[in-house]
């Protein structure tokens, strides 16, 4: 569906318009907003060199605990 004319979205002009709009978004913000949310977490320990994040802190107790350790040059976003 064409967001501008209300009709069926198709054709090279529509594609060109979408391409330009998305390219502008990438140029301005570095990428496309996908609307995805990061997993919920809370910081349970903090020191000058690290923060320990517990994800899904409201989960039921008794689960097996796993500590994920990313490599030094990747941010913790690599696992979350």
């Amino acid at each position: 569906m064409c967001r501008y004319c209300g009709g069926v979205a198709s054709g090279p002009f529509h594609d060109l318009g979408e391409w330009a709009r998305n390219a502008l978004e990438v140029a301005r913000f570095g990428g496309l907003d996908t609307g995805e949310e990061s997993s919920p977490y809370e910081i349970t320990q903090q020191s000058p060199t690290h923060r320990l994040r517990r994800y899904f802190p409201d989960s039921d107790p008794g689960r097996v605990a796993v500590i994920l350790i990313p490599p030094m040059m990747l941010s913790r976003r690599s696992s979350t």
């Binding site: 996908t34 997993s39 994920l68 350790i69 913790r76």
Partner: peptide
């Protein structure tokens, strides 16, 4: 990271309690 490829989201779905050591941005 997208929930579809997020390690913590995947582990949580499998019944795991995921923690991450975050070294921040040096």
């Amino acid at each position: 990271m997208s929930p579809a490829v997020s390690a913590v989201a995947g582990l949580h779905r499998c019944g795991v309690d995921p923690w991450v050591v975050d070294s921040g941005e040096p």
